[in-house]
Amino acid sequence: MLLADRTWPDAVDLAGLGGLGALAIALPALGYALLYLDYRAYLRSLRRALVLVRGYAVAVPEWVRRDTPPCFVALGLSRGCTTAEVLAAYRAQVKRLHPDAGGTRRAFARLQNHFEEAMRLASDAHP
């Protein structure tokens, strides 16, 4: 048989190409299926971890409260905050304690004193 008499692709070539094509589709599909199963296992383990973390106390330790200046405590801040954080906390408190918003003058004056002291401490800490 001469080379010119052969036709391409013959049955063997077609079977080989079909097998390679099926392999090219089946391997990525199998990879995606295994990835999906592993991702679901990861999410289940994460949910168990979140349940464990939820049980921890989020209270501030006594030594932190004892060492934090009263002006930061009144504004709900911690030592080491910036002046921008002090200003944001002050504005949130003003909305609640201002006499025009239903607060008392005494509480607002106390807030003003705490704000001035906190701004001084924050600006000293971050020159």
Rank of each mutant, 00 (worst) to 15 (best):
L52K: 14
L77K: 03
I25R: 02
G55W: 03
L43V: 08
I25L: 09
A24H: 05
G21V: 13
V53P: 03
V64E: 10
V51C: 05
P70Y: 10
L34E: 11
F72D: 04
H114G: 02
G18F: 13
V73M: 11
C71A: 15
T104L: 01
I25N: 02
A118G: 10
T82C: 00
A125S: 14
L14T: 05
R47W: 15
R96K: 11
H114K: 02
P28L: 03
W8D: 06
C71I: 10
M119N: 04
E117Q: 14
A125G: 10
G21A: 15
R40F: 10
G103E: 01
E116G: 00
E117N: 09
Y42F: 13
A109G: 02
L20Y: 04
A84I: 15
R106A: 06
A89F: 05
V53H: 14
A92V: 15
A101H: 08
L46Y: 10
T68C: 11
F108N: 01
P69T: 09
S78K: 11
L2R: 13
L87A: 15
G102M: 01
R54P: 06
V94I: 02
G103F: 01
K95Y: 15
C81Y: 07
A107R: 00
P70V: 15
D100Q: 06
L20R: 14
G16Y: 09
I25Q: 06
Y32E: 06
R79I: 10
E117R: 09
G19V: 01
L3I: 15
D10P: 00
R106H: 04
I25A: 12
F72Y: 15
G76V: 10
S78Y: 12
S78A: 13
A29S: 11
V73A: 12
Y90D: 04
R79Q: 14
E85K: 04
A84M: 06
A122K: 01
A92G: 05
R47K: 14
A88D: 12
T83I: 07
P9A: 02
L37I: 04
G80N: 04
D38N: 08
G76H: 06
G16H: 05
A101R: 04
G80I: 06
A74N: 08
L23M: 07
R91H: 13
V94T: 04
Y32P: 01
L77I: 08
V12Q: 06
R65T: 10
L20D: 09
V64W: 08
A49G: 11
V94E: 11
A29E: 04
P99Q: 00
T68E: 11
R48Q: 14
L97N: 00
A4C: 13
R91T: 15
Y36G: 09
Y32N: 00
A49P: 03
V58E: 08
A24W: 12
L27Q: 11
L17R: 10
V60G: 03
V53I: 12
A49I: 07
P70D: 14
R65D: 09
G103C: 00
L14N: 03
A125P: 07
G103W: 00
V12T: 07
A22K: 03
A59H: 14
G80E: 03
A57Y: 08
L27A: 08
T68M: 08
